[in-house]
Each structure stands twice: as structure tokens, then as C-alpha cells.
């Protein structure tokens, strides 16, 4: 009884949701080389709707549309760079999982290495300071002699 009710509720909820219209599109055939290019390129591109998924994985309708556009571009002989330019012109640099190396992205690319360098420098100076602190202080020979003479007197 409870299941029946739940099913009925679900059916009602689903009927209230109007879906996006998907216009039928003819499939775009690719030759083996183009298909390989298409398969290799998709994981490099971000789906704008579910941002942590690539265009290869995303189930979003926009991702399907973009996959179709990309197939069309590749069928017309577009290179990887052409496809990326097409997407970046519309959606911005964010669609690329690997941003291009430019002056604007220089910090992004070099940041981890700069941090590593800074950490190494920090550890090195710390170790050097500790080694200096651990070494016994220089002996004042005169004071030592005076102390010994005082004791023996």
C-alpha cells in the first residue's frame, strides 16, 4: 500500500516536470582517426552544468549538445586546438581542465613549484638553526681554568 502511494506520488511529480525538448539529430559518422581524436579530447573538456564532470562523462543535456557540436567540428577536420578555441570563445577558459600557459595563468602553473621551493627553503633554514642550537656553546677556557683553580684551592 505504501509502495503504491509512493509510486503514485512519484508519477504525479514527474508529470508536473516539463522536460527540455530534444530535437532529433542525424548521427555524425567519424573515421577511425577522428573517432580516436574525439575520444581523447572529451575528457579534457569540462561540462559547464556539472562542473566536476568532463564532457565525456556528463549526462547533462548541454553536454550531449556540445558532444554533438564537437563531433561535427571534428568531422569537418577541426584540430584539438580548433575545438578548444570554439569552446573557450563561448564559455571561457574554464571549459579546459588544463588551462593554457599564458601570463594570466602563470601563477596557476608555477604556484605549486614556488610553494615547494619556499617549503624547502623553510625546512633548510630551520634545520640549520637547530644544528647551530644543538652544538655546545664555545668554551671560555679562561673561565674554566678559574673555576678549576677555585675548586682545587
Amino acid at each position: 500500500m505504501r509502495y503504491a502511494l509512493a509510486t503514485l506520488l512519484l508519477a504525479c511529480a514527474m508529470s508536473a516536470v516539463r522536460a527540455q525538448v530534444e530535437t532529433p539529430r542525424p548521427p555524425i559518422p567519424l573515421d577511425a582517426r577522428q573517432e580516436a581524436q574525439y575520444k581523447a579530447l572529451l575528457p579534457e573538456l569540462r561540462c559547464l552544468v556539472c562542473q566536476n564532470e568532463s564532457l565525456a562523462d556528463s549526462q547533462a543535456p548541454l553536454a550531449a549538445d556540445l558532444r554533438y557540436e564537437i563531433r561535427g567540428l571534428i568531422a569537418k577536420g577541426a584540430s584539438d586546438a580548433d575545438v578548444k578555441r570554439y569552446l573557450v570563445a563561448r564559455y571561457g577558459e574554464f571549459v579546459l581542465y588544463r588551462p593554457r600557459l599564458e601570463t594570466r595563468t602563470l601563477l596557476l602553473w608555477s604556484g605549486p613549484f614556488l610553494l615547494l621551493l619556499a617549503a624547502c627553503a623553510g625546512v633548510l633554514s630551520y634545520a640549520r638553526r637547530r644544528a647551530r642550537a644543538a652544538a655546545p656553546p664555545p668554551v671560555d677556557e679562561g673561565a674554566l681554568r678559574r673555576l678549576l683553580e677555585e675548586r682545587d684551592r
Partner: peptide, 8 residues
């Protein structure tokens, strides 16, 4: 929509 960069 794609040409205008619409994603939602």
C-alpha cells in the same frame, strides 16, 4: 544558446 555561451 551554445553560440551565446548559455549553460543554464
Amino acid at each position: 544558446g551554445i553560440d551565446w555561451g548559455v549553460y543554464g
